[in-house]
């Protein structure tokens, strides 16, 4: 049996909106992935430490507060600093189109916005994240 992809679903910042992240976490789990959820109010440091400790293959960041341009790149940078940049970072939330380019340039691999089906997210993970 092949290794199963391990995913850390995380809520950086002070944002308390966790309906989306929890639905995605359950959907990914139901799709057969191993999913860990950080809970709310995480700093980028806390997220990166958990990701390394748990030896995950990717991190899904959910931000609804508008702080995505600060928090998402912060996670990517910390992963790089700690030599863990093989961990793929994707994200979701209230993210205006205009911010996509900045976030992709800063190492976020994929962004999902409101109205995305869970099937689309599951398929993306299947195709783009391999267990290491």
């Amino acid at each position: 049996m092949g290794k199963i992809v391990r995913i850390l679903m995380a809520k950086p910042g002070l944002d308390g909106h966790d309906r989306g992240v929890k639905v995605v976490a359950r959907a990914l789990r139901d799709a057969g992935f191993e999913v860990i959820y950080t809970g709310l109010h995480q700093t980028p440091e806390m997220i990166v430490n958990t990701a390394i400790q748990e030896d995950v293959d990717c991190i899904g960041l959910s931000v609804m507060s508008g702080a995505h341009n600060v928090l998402m790149p912060a996670v990517v940078n910390l992963l790089r600093e700690k030599g863990a940049d093989d961990i793929i970072v994707f994200g979701g939330g209230i993210i205006p189109d205009d911010d996509f380019e900045f976030l992709y340039k800063n190492g976020v691999k994929k962004l999902f916005t409101p109205g995305t089906s869970i099937e689309e997210i599951v398929n993306w993970v299947r195709e783009n994240v391999k267990p290491h």
């Binding site: 944002d15 507060s65 508008g66 702080a67 600060v70 928090l71």
Partner: peptide, 15 residues
Amino acid sequence: YDSDHPRSRGEVGKC
């Protein structure tokens, strides 16, 4: 938290 607290980075005036 105050706006100059480290945990407030990126969140000030947003929501």
